[in-house]
Nucleic acid binder design. Structure first.
Length: 419
DNA sequence: TACTCGTGGCT
DNA sequence: TAGCCAAGAGT
């Protein structure tokens, strides 16, 4: 087999990787590189299973930079498994607010309780046992087993996936079951008997620092250049093969800010929906027959205004009337770009007397803007909460509000206040 | 298998 | 800027 082979079979990849001499040389190069250039991460050589677990869950699909401050706060708030297990889920979600992928936090909490109730508060010491726990998949199981318990457990994640596929010149999709089988097989073969945890860390560091997604440092610092098939054929920019991502869709939502005196209505999102368990202002998605990326026309604002008023009144059994449009927030969630148009409605004495009983099954609260901080919210909800807290209570509230309205109207060449 | 689940940084 | 990317897991 030569580097000119264009349809490298998996067996050929594995066959090459199985060459003991080649593997030993690879390992030596990686270990040597790691000793000199490994990242100085705050958790380097951390072996406490609880701390490794929390950190690995946080790092799922999340950058090191984003994780560090959250990890510090989380460990202060929940220093041990016992404290995490004894906390309310709401507290855990609150500590997670802003990190995203909130099922990670819910599974973390579930697993803490499970470990305490059924495992004497101890982690399984092997990858298989770890993988049976909620939120712990194949990668995380291997990471905990090797980092905390020194088990010879392989790992495949974003960094190592890039490294392995390039090293082996794997031209097929690494996401298929065939690709996954090949990758885990190679991960297992390359892993040494001695200090597998450190070696796994070395693999990830090499992927993160040298074998990067964009502009990998093949000729300026990679210890594996001479053994890398992708480099030999100049394909390092083509490997790994990209999966096609679903297209981004634009949608429009209305957020309803209901004010009763100095309190605002928020509700807890139910299980099974996005941001489950987090608190938010009531929001409604408009039919997506037309979803422009640009600002909305006055006609579209009016339609949204009317629809949201009706939806809210039906759902909460509270007939409200919007005072004005407060703001628009554009944010991204998964494959959606959402234009969130926020309306303000004041509850009048008459309305309060007639129908204030919201739907019984829905957790809700009337909260002063100064207390929004106590509730875990999605980032877009938090942005709105901050805006309310800063604008609604500032001494120049009316003036600021008027000024904003005028400038917004002027800019868009329309009147959004609907007299 | 393909899709969902979040967010922020980078180019 | 619009898309890509980041120590994946669950369904």
């Amino acid at each position: 087999m030569t580097s000119r082979t264009h349809d490298t079979s998996d067996q050929e990849s594995i066959g090459l990787s199985a060459d003991a001499v080649w593997l030993r040389r690879l390992r030596r190069s990686i270990i040597s590189w790691y000793s000199r250039h490994g990242r100085d991460l705050p958790w380097r050589d951390e072996r406490d299973a609880y701390r490794v677990w929390i950190r690995e869950i946080m790092l799922q699909q999340t950058t090191v930079t984003a994780v560090i401050p959250y990890l510090q706060r989380f460990m202060q708030r929940f220093p041990t498994l016992i404290e995490l297990a004894h906390a309310d889920e709401a507290e855990v979600l609150h500590a997670w607010e802003g990190l995203g992928y909130y099922s990670r936090a819910r599974n973390l909490h579930r697993t803490a309780r499970l470990l305490l109730s059924e495992h004497d508060g101890e982690f399984p010491r092997d990858a298989e046992g770890l993988q049976s726990l909620p939120g712990i998949g194949r990668y995380t199981a291997g990471a905990i087993a090797s980092f905390a318990f020194g088990a010879r457990a392989p790992i495949v994640e974003a960094n190592t996936l890039r490294l392995y596929t390039r090293l082996l010149g794997y031209r097929h999709s690494p996401k298929t079951s065939r690709g996954q089988t090949m990758l885990w097989e190679f991960a297992s073969r390359i892993l040494p008997t001695q200090a597998p945890g450190q070696f796994n860390q070395a693999l990830m560091d090499l992927g993160a620092v040298v074998c990067t997604a964009e502009n990998p440092s093949c000729t300026s610092g990679c210890p594996l250049t001479s053994q890398c098939r992708a480099f030999a054929t100049g394909e390092q920019h083509l490997i790994p093969l990209q999966a096609t991502r679903p297209a981004i869709e634009s949608t429009i939502e209305a957020a309803v800010v209901v004010r009763d005196g100095d309190r605002f209505l928020i509700h807890q999102r139910p299980q099974g929906v996005r941001w489950a368990g987090l608190w938010d202002f009531p929001r409604y998605t408009q039919g997506s027959d037309r979803v422009p990326d640009e600002s909305l026309s006055p006609r579209e604002i009016n339609r949204l205004w009317n629809d949201a008023e009706r939806s809210f009144s039906d759902e909460w059994n509270l007939k409200i009337t919007f005072n004005r449009k407060v703001t628009e927030i554009v944010h991204h969630v998964t494959r959606y770009r959402i234009r969130l148009v926020c309306f303000l409605a004041d509850v009048t004495d008459h309305q309060r007397r007639s129908t204030v009983a919201p739907v019984e099954s829905r957790e809700h609260a009337w909260v002063r803007a100064t207390h929004f901080e106590e509730y875990a919210m999605p980032v877009s909800g938090r942005k709105l909460a901050k805006l309310i807290a800063s604008e609604m209570y500032s001494p120049s509230e009316e003036r600021a509000s008027q000024r904003k309205k005028r400038s917004a109207s002027k800019k868009a060449g329309r009147d959004l206040t609907r007299s």
